[in-house]
Amino acid sequence: MKSTETLEDFYRVKFGINYEGINADLGHFNVFKMEDCSGPGKPPVQYSRRDFYKIALLRGTHLYHYGDKTLQVSGSTLIFFNPQIPYTFQPLTETQEGYFCIFKDAFFTGHLRSGIKDLPMYAPGCKPAYVLNSEQDEAFARIFDKMVEEMQSDYVFKSDLIRTYIMEIIHGALKLQPSETLYKHTDANARIAAVFTELLERQFPIESRSQHFQLRSAKDFAEKLNLHPNHLNRAIKAVTGKTTTSHIAERVVTEAIALLKHTDWNISEISFTLGFEQPAHFTNFFKRQTSLTPSAFRV
């Protein structure tokens, strides 16, 4: 598994363009028709993380691999790809149709009160795929067509207009599937749970063998948050119905599954990155969570 695909990698692999220095262009944006980038003779989409955001309107049937999850989507689907989560999609139909756009977080710097990463479809644990009916497909396709047209124009304020089109897509999606993350945290327990989740997610994804998962227990998180472990546990339980330990274990096993499925790292290397002192401890933990050993899961 390649750790992260950069914009330079994208243009070199997809179009054979040696676009040196593009990663320094923090405000980069581009939009494409799917048929120009997929199909016979075009390289498949590799499973990896990217250093840029992507929004895609996919038509047809695809297997969609996102983190540790694999979904089959059919028809027209709008998908928001987060650079923090590795992904790929495998077409199951011969013809590739649709659109996608790519952009860096800095494309919105100074234009949103908070960053693009704080939007609900990019939040940890979100559901980033929106199945569309024919009318919705047409509406989103018109927006992508406007972006394609604008990219070919010499309008001096086209970046501002394109940002408006992206936000139109985002808000159109939110209307289809409202997200609970839109609601503000209403009490102290909810705020504690939100900060705990942020600290937990900040340690992922694991991208190299040298990474090491640090905050592994409720006590570790409580110390970081300047709370008593019992206070933290009560808050997490009240908000989510699960213990702090359960949340940590579920997130660790999710990352373990992703590493076992999509890297060639050996069990010792994976156990080290996930904070286990001995591979045997990791094996016992993984078996408790999944009823399989890591080696048996990989077979």
Results as ranks from 00 to 15, higher is better:
residue 178 P to Q: 14
residue 276 F to L: 02
residue 40 P to M: 07
residue 102 I to G: 00
residue 25 D to A: 14
residue 83 P to M: 07
residue 236 I to D: 05
residue 253 V to F: 14
residue 161 L to M: 15
residue 12 R to G: 10
residue 48 S to W: 03
residue 271 S to C: 09
residue 230 N to I: 14
residue 236 I to G: 08
residue 89 F to L: 07
residue 26 L to P: 02
residue 71 L to N: 12
residue 243 T to S: 14
residue 51 D to Q: 07
residue 1 M to E: 01
residue 133 N to V: 11
residue 153 S to V: 04
residue 192 I to P: 06
residue 172 G to K: 13
residue 80 F to R: 03
residue 275 G to A: 05
residue 66 Y to W: 13
residue 82 N to W: 02
residue 158 K to N: 00
residue 106 A to G: 05
residue 230 N to F: 10
residue 237 K to R: 10
residue 134 S to D: 12
residue 296 A to S: 07
residue 121 M to D: 05
residue 106 A to D: 04
residue 210 S to M: 15
residue 266 N to M: 14
residue 176 L to I: 11
residue 4 T to E: 09
residue 70 T to A: 15
residue 81 F to C: 00
residue 204 F to E: 03
residue 87 Y to H: 08
residue 23 N to H: 13
residue 108 F to E: 07
residue 76 S to Y: 00
residue 296 A to H: 07
residue 272 F to W: 05
residue 181 T to P: 11
residue 287 K to A: 10
residue 137 D to V: 06
residue 196 F to N: 03
residue 162 I to Q: 01
residue 183 Y to V: 12
residue 19 Y to D: 14
residue 105 D to C: 13
residue 85 I to M: 09
residue 67 G to V: 02
residue 155 Y to Q: 00
residue 243 T to R: 11
residue 243 T to K: 12
residue 84 Q to N: 11
residue 96 Q to T: 14
residue 264 D to W: 04
residue 245 T to L: 14
residue 213 F to I: 02
residue 70 T to I: 15
residue 48 S to D: 08
residue 130 Y to Q: 06
residue 246 S to G: 14
residue 274 L to F: 06
residue 127 K to D: 01
residue 224 K to M: 09
residue 122 Y to E: 04
residue 83 P to I: 09
residue 180 E to Y: 10
residue 184 K to T: 12
residue 255 E to R: 11
residue 238 A to E: 11
residue 59 R to C: 10
residue 68 D to K: 14
residue 275 G to I: 00
residue 171 H to S: 12
residue 78 L to V: 02
residue 186 T to C: 12
residue 196 F to W: 05
residue 290 T to G: 04
residue 156 V to E: 01
residue 53 Y to A: 01
residue 242 K to L: 15
residue 280 A to W: 03
residue 260 L to S: 07
residue 60 G to F: 09
residue 174 L to R: 13
residue 244 T to I: 12
residue 196 F to P: 06
residue 143 I to L: 02
residue 267 I to W: 03
residue 31 V to S: 05
residue 151 M to G: 03
residue 64 Y to K: 11
residue 18 N to V: 08
residue 53 Y to H: 01
residue 72 Q to I: 11
residue 227 L to P: 08
residue 14 K to I: 13
residue 34 M to F: 10
residue 253 V to C: 13
residue 37 C to R: 09
residue 62 H to K: 03
residue 5 E to I: 13
residue 124 P to R: 00
residue 153 S to N: 04
residue 209 R to P: 03
residue 273 T to Q: 14
